[in-house]
Amino acid sequence: MAIGEKEQEIIQEFLLFEDWMDKYNYLIELGQSIPIIEDKYRNESHLINGCQSRVWISAEMIDGKMILKADSDAVITKGIVYLLIRVLSGENPNDILNAELAFLNQIGLQEHLSPTRANGLTSMIKQIKLYALAFQTKEN
């Protein structure tokens, strides 16, 4: 499934929730299915700067696709990282670099997107794109 299609799927899922609490409860639930980062990557160099909670994200290239894994010590943050991974993991670096990730606005998580927001969603996206750029450069 392409990035855009996965984004649409998430938008549809979140349409079901009118109440903010249901939305956050769903996010909390989603966080539980995050592909957990391997212990060897759970270190300073995989820690995302600018987050109030600690977030680690790793990236590996397998058969030309970038595989992302992560973890966070905050549950809501974990749910948000899960959404990013669901949309971006398994895609090629070029598509990841071009992804606009408009779904985050559409599912009402825009408040997490401002550059100074404590959960550092912007920093997470930046880090994932940096991984993609590094892999792309290596391939070329």
Partner: peptide, 11 residues
Amino acid sequence: HPYDAGTILDQ
């Protein structure tokens, strides 16, 4: 986590 709590309190 304080961040989780703060997010819900804000809501």
